[in-house]
Nucleic acid binder design. Structure first.
Lengths: 128, 128
DNA sequence: TGCCATAATTAGAATAATTCTAATTATTAA
DNA sequence: TTAATAATTAGAATTATTCTAATTATGGCA
């Protein structure tokens, strides 16, 4: 039986939505799945190609996989490495489309990432 | 004598503005510089930390370094891997700032990347 | 049921990008 | 000079990912 790819999506959604391949692997194993890391990468690759998952590259460490695939914005905390999803406004979407059109660029996807320090980390820094 | 970091910026600017560490290394060597890859990475790291260079991670291959450091948008071609810089409009900048503020996110930098096929690649695909 | 073709999974090797380490070399200040 | 510090280096180590070739599972059908 083919390893059910939906298990991976469930794991991601059940753990904050943004996991690396190894984190997914650990979760799968700890819930009794017998699966190899190569298979995790295989399935992730397939799901990304099918548009069922988003691959996020923060430039820090491994790629992370997002179960949410509609156009949205990522807030990446440089302290705790957390990724927060934020809706993308229609006006932002429109602006990006306009930029692409002006440059005769055949846009397939947008990646809007804001890097900085998340509210929790700002808070815990102050407390010190 | 400390290897002059400005040589690296010159190399980047003289070659389309978006090179990887190894590409920069090759250029440096071919113009007679005797330098190791470790030093290239050292200097790049320093320049990025000082805000003199931007590190771009397309998720494909090595990180690339951009000599332009003001807020701008990247068009990344998934065919030829070229990166094109586009000015970021004040309205886009404003929208991103607003998003961060709403989420109480202490934004340090923005990364707006549009992925797709550049005008040249669209053209050469048609010609086939 | 047993057999075959195909697809999925696997462990581990291979690769690529980057960082680390420890030694060497250069620079500076006294 | 000389001693202290900083920069550079080669190569090892690490990390993330992909590749390979072998194994295992699965479904169709005689």
């Amino acid at each position: 039986m083919a390893k059910d790819p939906s298990i991976i999506k469930k794991i991601i959604m059940g753990n904050g939505g943004h996991l690396s391949a190894v984190e997914i692997w650990d979760c799968a194993k700890s819930q009794g799945e017998s699966v190899s890391l190569a298979t995790i990468y295989n399935i992730l690759g397939r799901l990304v190609a099918q548009g069922e998952l988003l691959e996020i590259n923060t430039g820090e460490g491994a790629a992370r996989y997002d179960a949410r695939v509609d156009d949205h914005t990522h807030l990446v905390c440089t302290e705790c490495n957390a990724i927060q999803d934020v809706d993308m406004s229609k006006s932002l979407e429109g602006l990006l489309g306009k930029v692409a059109t002006q440059q005769k660029f055949n846009m397939h996807m947008t990646e809007v990432t804001l890097k900085g320090v998340c509210a929790q980390c700002v808070q815990s820094t102050k407390e010190k």
